[in-house]
Design a protein around this nucleic acid. Structure first.
Length: 703
DNA sequence: GGGCCGTACTG
DNA sequence: CAGTAC
DNA sequence: GCCC
């Protein structure tokens, strides 16, 4: 397998380059199109909104529990390529036998691979000139978009002639999903496209043909272009949903998408039809992968305690070629692996078993995850999957993002490029559906589809609203349903609670990443004020900062005292520290504050002197005996934490921000029945050891 | 078909 | 309690 | 989404 993958890698490398080289702005169509497009776009968005709504709300009828049920209307279901039969074959290749029907889409390996596999089922005759005799015209017909460039290259490789100009010889017009039928007509200055001679197909068509090693029926509905109405049938064309890589609505989030309110339907072309966030809001910065990190040592004994990550390379190498990949490859055969933790830490006998059961190896926390993937051969795939995961996260899909992130983690550790479904499916946490996506990514970026989903007006508004601190999925949906479309709408009309108002007010601030250096400044400032109140108070900088990130989403601080009990610490913070920081003008507002009675966290916003940018800042108050557990909790990342906690629960224990407890009784579905007995809370490393998890440096917890 | 972390704060 | 956040 |  590995060798096969390697071979694939070489072959595909060329296409990788294409992706890499062309980073041009997505798909700028040819200039001529530009103006007309702008116009058409509004018309389209106005039109398609209600349709999309309709289709969405019809999903509501489908049982929420039934995750696997296609979210698309049953009649369209069979068109879903991934899970169902291939498109009907017009001129089945000799190989298009029953075998193909079994495995829906199999990459023609003979094309990509040099060493024929011994697997007889996979031996396929060369479909090399599958497209010979066909003349493709793409729309837009240029290489500006990486995905399209890839499709064109592929088509040519399979014998198609790429027509530079539209002419009578064209047999197929392959249309980007971002385009619609009217745009084609307008551009080509046609009233209609002669269907007898020319097939107008969706961008997936070539890849499907290649997948099935046949010229599939171009007239099938799933290849329809947006806005295309087959003959006189005047049914609405809302089909984009019916494709294999569509973005499914969140499982549990299938809640009602209210039909558009009047205000939304009546939008005239005069009012701003695009719910895109205003320019001023476009400040969200992608997490720049922490390449080189700042040099400053985290000196101040306060925020200190964490050395910066060592040489990156070392880490990367060790996980690429070290135990991890091995573990992923042969996986299932060793019995009880010993805890061969690299960064061996094990505080000698803590009653922790040195022998880690096999099943435990599957937990994310059992492996070094540095979150890096630029040197991964699968970087491209990872990036796309990541976007999908982010999208699902934003729509508040509870579980898909988890699945995606697990899959991404295994791809990161996989030493060779994964191109085929079969190869992908063998890897842990990659099932049929993700495998199909991975395969398809190597053919054509499905990013397109991702984008079109993101362009869905309602979704876009929802996503915008969800970025407001305090607005979650439920509230966001309500606001969308009420017809609000802009932050300005929210500000002037919507009913928001206090926190949401603040979140809105400082939308830009809170959605701007905080540079590592600034995190430290905030931290130092708090630490200094705290020291002033009492020498024994310590402040630790947590979150992604501790994991070594170059920038963070907010500022997470643990405040602790070596000798004080929680009560005293809390009183000090609530009654003295916080007011003091407010007085200094550093703290700007409280968003969720603990009462002085009980509680342990304080959320608010802070602002450095001389600055006017508010940052989200969180304090976690921690008594010394809980420090270790708190460090784990506040260091994350969340995947790592979940993994640790799940592991604990599987071992009859319970891990939370306060400590590790044993003898926890659980009822059905792990429901906690008893609190259990505290085993360890003070020492971070001991908690790892007791759980049988090899010590992970903070920057190795980026799962 | 059910589970997928466990908790704190708000209204 | 639901919703939100970490 | 995946896994058991």
């Amino acid at each position: 397998m590995a060798t096969e993958d390697a071979a694939l890698k070489v072959k595909v490398a060329r296409f990788e380059e294409l992706y890499a080289l062309d980073d041009s702005q997505d798909d700028e169509p040819d200039e001529g199109l530009l103006q007309s497009m702008a116009m058409l776009k509004r018309k389209r968005s106005e039109k398609s909104e209600p349709l999309a709504q309709t289709s969405s709300s019809s999903m509501t009828a489908i049982s929420k529990r039934d995750r696997d049920a296609p979210e698309i209307p049953a009649k369209l279901q069979k068109l879903s390529r991934t899970t169902s039969a291939p498109p009907s074959l017009i001129s089945p290749h000799k190989t298009a036998s029953s075998r193909q029907l079994r495995r829906t889409s199999t990459l023609p390996k003979s094309v990509v691979t040099t060493t024929p596999t011994s697997d007889p089922a996979d031996v396929a005759p060369k479909p090399a000139k599958l497209f010979s005799g066909l003349h493709f015209y793409f729309f837009p017909n240029n290489l500006k978009n990486p995905g399209r460039k890839f499709r064109i290259q592929k088509a040519e490789e399979y014998g198609a002639k790429w027509e530079q100009a539209f002419s009578a010889t064209v047999t197929h017009i392959v249309v980007d999903r971002s385009m619609n039928y009217d745009q084609i007509l307008q551009y080509l200055r046609l009233d209609a496209i002669p269907q007898q001679n020319i097939h107008v197909v969706d961008e997936r068509y070539p890849a499907d043909c290649i997948s099935f090693r046949s010229i599939v029926d171009a007239g099938q509905r799933q290849y329809y272009i947006k806005g295309y109405k087959p003959q006189q049938v005047s049914e609405p064309t809302v089909i984009p949903r019916a494709d294999s890589l569509q973005l499914k609505p969140a499982g549990r989030a299938v809640q009602t998408r209210e039909p558009q309110t009047l205000s939304q339907r009546t939008t005239t072309t005069l009012s701003d039809p695009s719910p895109v966030k205003p320019a001023s809001m476009a400040t969200t910065v992608e997490d720049p992968s922490p390449g080189k990190r700042a040099l400053e040592p985290s000196d101040s004994s306060l925020s200190a305690g964490w050395e910066r990550p060592g040489p990156r390379e070392q880490i990367v190498l060790s996980y690429c070629f070290g135990t991890d990949s091995r573990q992923l490859i042969d996986d299932d055969d060793d019995q009880g692996t010993t805890s061969t933790a690299t960064t061996g830490t094990n505080l000698l006998d803590l009653g922790s078993s040195t022998v880690v059961p096999k099943w435990q190896q599957r937990f994310q926390c059992m492996q070094q995850n540095t979150g890096k993937n630029e040197d991964s051969p699968n970087a491209e795939t990872i990036a796309l999957l990541q976007e999908m995961a982010e999208y699902y996260t934003q729509i508040k899909d509870e579980w898909r993002p988890i699945a995606y992130r697990k899959a991404i983690a295994t791809l990161r550790k996989h030493p060779v490029k994964v191109t085929t479904k079969e190869a992908a499916e063998k890897l842990p946490f990659i099932g049929e559906r993700l495998a199909a996506k991975i395969e398809e990514i190597t053919f054509a970026g499905f990013l397109q589809r991702l984008q079109s989903a993101r362009e869905e007006p309602a979704d876009q508004v929802l996503q915008l609203f969800l970025k407001v601190y305090g607005i979650g999925y439920a509230k966001g949906m309500r606001l969308v349903a009420q017809g609000y479309k802009t932050l300005e709408d929210l500000r002037t009309k919507a009913d928001l609670d206090q926190n949401q108002k603040i979140g809105l007010e400082h939308f830009d601030d809170f959605n701007t990443r905080v540079p590592r250096l600034e995190v430290k400044q905030h931290s130092d400032l708090v630490a200094k004020a705290a020291k002033n109140l009492n020498e024994g108070i310590q402040v630790y900088t947590m979150g992604s900062y501790r994991r070594g990130a170059e920038s963070t989403g907010d500022i997470d601080l643990v405040i602790t005292h070596a000798n004080w009990p929680m009560t005293r610490l809390r009183v000090m913070v609530i009654d003295s520290l916080v007011p003091q920081l407010f007085k200094q003008g550093f703290l700007k507002c409280a968003l969720a504050a603990t009462s002085r009675q009980d509680g342990s966290k304080w959320h608010g916003a802070s602002c450095l002197p001389g600055s006017n940018v508010w940052r989200r800042i969180d304090f976690l108050l921690v008594p010394a005996e809980e420090l270790g557990a708190a460090l784990i909790y506040f260091t994350g990342n969340d995947i790592f934490n979940r993994s640790m906690r799940l592991l604990a629960s599987k071992k009859g224990m319970r891990l939370n921000q306060r400590g590790l407890y044993k003898d926890v009784m659980r009822g059905k579905s792990r429901e906690k029945l008893t609190e259990g007995e505290l085993v360890e809370g003070r020492d971070e490393k001991k908690i790892f050891a007791i759980l049988g998890v090899p010590w992970r440096e903070p920057w190795e917890r980026i799962c």
